[in-house]
């Protein structure tokens, strides 16, 4: 069958995609005109264009939402599991090795299962986040990219934020303390784990955080509105950081 035998709108295209058929080199516009469904080839193309754009828009939006939710859930899982694992390791360090005298196999097994879940979850994030946000994942690592997306509540939301907000995402508590007048403003939120922030000496760290947040914000916007990978963004950040880290303290 063909899409236009099912109708002439997006539903017809969607139905045809679900049903499928045998690939061949038919002259579909010619056949459609001959069968009288369309008056001209241009008329056929106009209808097909509207139908494919509209049909794809719907399905793609659903798929993007799902993909984004998966990444957000995964990064939250990673954090929870990571915290549990650290805590467990800390609390059981002293006696976990002494399985011969204390019945702790269950704890050891549980701990190893947690570790496995953590590694698998990280693998999932590393695979999926670059598909969702190639530039953000290129400038930050995919786990940090996913954390920023999760904290913002989605890529769309992240792309709309000013970079000053991105800079302190994840430092909400510190920000509220500051707004209450109890503390200085936070210099950085989760972007602290970015090597360019963490690796910059204390007195320049604020500048580093600002520079990193600025580029990550641009990366999120390119991902949201253009989608192509632009390696030059990383080069620009490298250059900027070289200047910041090269400043002498005098």
């Amino acid at each position: 069958m063909t899409w236009y035998e099912r109708g002439t709108d997006a539903d017809a295209v969607t139905e045809e995609l679900d049903e499928g058929g045998e690939p061949d080199a038919r002259d579909l516009p010619g056949d459609a005109v001959e069968s009288g469904v369309f008056g001209t080839r241009d008329g056929y193309y106009d209808a097909l264009h509207q139908a494919t754009v509209e049909g794809a828009r719907r399905r793609v939006d659903e798929a993007v939402d799902t993909a984004e939710r998966d990444v957000i859930n995964a990064v939250r899982t990673l954090e929870t599991v990571g915290d549990s694992l650290n805590e467990l390791d800390e609390r059981t360090r002293d006696w976990r090795e002494e399985t011969d005298r204390v019945p702790v196999e269950g704890v050891v097994e549980g701990r190893n299962a947690l570790e496995e879940t953590r590694d698998e979850t990280r693998g999932f994030i590393e695979e999926r986040t670059p598909e969702l946000a190639p530039n953000l994942s290129n400038l930050a690592d995919p786990v940090l990219a996913a954390r920023l997306i999760a904290l913002a509540g989605g890529l769309d939301e992240l792309a709309r934020m000013p970079s000053s907000t991105v800079q302190v995402l994840g430092a909400e508590d510190a920000l509220f303390r500051h707004l209450r007048g109890d503390a200085p403003p936070p210099k950085h939120g989760v972007i602290y784990v970015h090597p360019y922030v963490r690796g910059t000496r204390e007195d320049e760290r604020g500048s580093a955080a600002r520079a990193v947040a600025g580029k990550l914000t641009i990366a999120a916007r390119v991902d949201r509105y253009a989608g192509d990978l632009r390696p030059q963004l990383a080069d620009e950040l490298d250059e900027k950081m070289e200047r910041i880290q090269g400043r002498d303290d005098g």
């Binding site: 995609l17 579909l28 754009v53």
Partner: peptide, 27 residues
Amino acid sequence: AGTRDRLFPVFADARKPSVYAGIVEGV
């Protein structure tokens, strides 16, 4: 595709051409 009248987006896996057989003409 929204900016190009004759660009038709097909959200599908190219390893399964039967999916878009009733949409793509001979090229």
